[in-house]
């Protein structure tokens, strides 16, 4: 059976069936449940992960596309000792209602802050505009990204 390997949150992993979208390999084989199925069409952003540091939709990306690359998900953010400042900021602002969209937004925030540590409101909105939130927590989510930026500087 064909296998590929990649780095998942800093650890080397190996999965089979490299033709299926990455989301199934991550959720079902690697037990990485933060990667959420929303639409399967790159329209909602729930499944966004970082691949070599840049945002990608795990719902459509074939698993083989990440061979020998680095995949980052929410599970890789906090350690048992310390919560990651982005997650802390989302909790501080209670930035969510149902919370289903947050994994993708948190990873988008990580990608954003890595390239722009002090984003303006407009830059935050731009970075999150392909992420949907149905409950209307947008204002809090924007504040959470601003807070994360402060916490990390």
């Amino acid at each position: 059976m064909e296998k590929i390997s990649f780095t998942l949150n800093g650890k080397e992993v190996e999965v089979t069936e490299p033709d299926r979208p990455l989301i199934y390999a991550l959720r079902n084989d690697c037990n990485v449940k933060s990667v959420r199925y929303g639409c399967g069409l790159e329209q909602c952003g729930c499944c966004v992960v970082l691949i070599n540091g840049s945002k990608q939709y795990a719902c459509t990306l074939p698993t083989h596309a990440v061979a020998n690359k680095s995949v980052e998900t929410v599970e890789g953010l906090s350690t048992s000792e310390e919560i990651h400042p982005i997650q802390q900021a989302f909790l501080d602002e209670q930035a969510g209602q149902c919370g289903y969209c947050l994994s993708g937004m948190i990873m988008a925030t990580k990608g954003l802050l890595a390239r722009n540590s002090k984003p303006t409101r407009a830059e935050i909105v731009d970075a999150l505009d392909n992420h949907l939130c149905r409950c209307g927590a947008h204002s809090r989510i924007i504040r959470a990204v601003q807070r994360a930026s402060d916490l990390m500087s």
Binding site: N28, N31, V32, K33, S34, R36, Y37, T73, V74, E75, L77, S78, Q87, F90, L91, Q94, G96, G99, Y100, L102, S103, I106
Partner: peptide, 20 residues
């Protein structure tokens, strides 16, 4: 009081979808 359920939900769990 901060919501009970949010810490799980910003950390990769908390939904029926995640039950295995």
């Amino acid at each position: 009081i901060p919501r009970d359920d949010l810490p799980k939900k910003v950390n990769g769990g908390g939904f029926i979808h995640d039950r295995s």
